[in-house]
């Protein structure tokens, strides 16, 4: 009885696996102006983001964390997408990403590689993994004006 091997191409696309194995912008920013961290208590995924915001621009971003390939690739791609952009752009990217995953809206124009995560919407229990990074980013952006906390 030969049953074809199940396919996960929609979920584990090459670009996602690449970011999961080789995360971009991983580490700390000693001169961060804003920081936030978040936890998914159900699965134990953890993400912390450091931002250096200068004149409304995200001059630099680093993240730390542990968790599944979806949570870690998501924040890695997100970091690439918002780096060098204005905080307003970052909010727009965050909004488009959430809409893609939770409202089945077609990927917005500013998502870049993040578009690869569109298939996660078909795995409802994994959507929260993909959203942890944007949640922490929004928290970090909301720290504007207050000194960065440890």
């Amino acid at each position: 009885m030969a049953i074809a091997e199940p396919q996960f191409d929609d979920l584990y696309r090459e670009i996602i696996l690449d970011h999961a194995k080789k995360p971009r912008n991983r580490g700390e920013l000693p001169d961060a102006t804003q920081r936030a961290e978040g936890l998914n208590p159900v699965c134990g995924d953890e993400i912390a983001i450091d931002l250096r915001v200068d004149g409304g621009q995200i001059a630099d971003i680093r993240f730390r964390g542990q968790g599944c390939s979806i949570s870690q690739s998501s924040v890695s791609m997100l970091s690439e997408q918002v780096k060098g952009r204005s905080t307003a752009d970052a909010h727009a990217i965050s909004g488009q990403f959430k809409a893609m995953l939770t409202e089945s809206v077609a990927p917005g124009p500013d998502l870049g590689d993040l578009e690869a995560l569109e298939g996660v919407a078909k795995f409802p229990v994994r959507v929260k993994c993909a959203l942890l990074g944007v949640k922490v980013l929004e928290d970090a952006l909301a720290q504007a004006g207050s000194p960065a906390k440890e």
């Binding site: 199940p6 396919q7 996960f8 979920l11 584990y12 699965c43 995924d45 968790g67 599944c68 390939s69 979806i70 795995f123 994994r126 993994c129």
Partner: peptide, 13 residues
């Protein structure tokens, strides 16, 4: 392989 990824792939099987 993180356990969540393992569990998703197992579910596919």
């Amino acid at each position: 392989v993180h356990p969540h990824d393992m569990s998703t792939i197992a579910d596919g099987h």
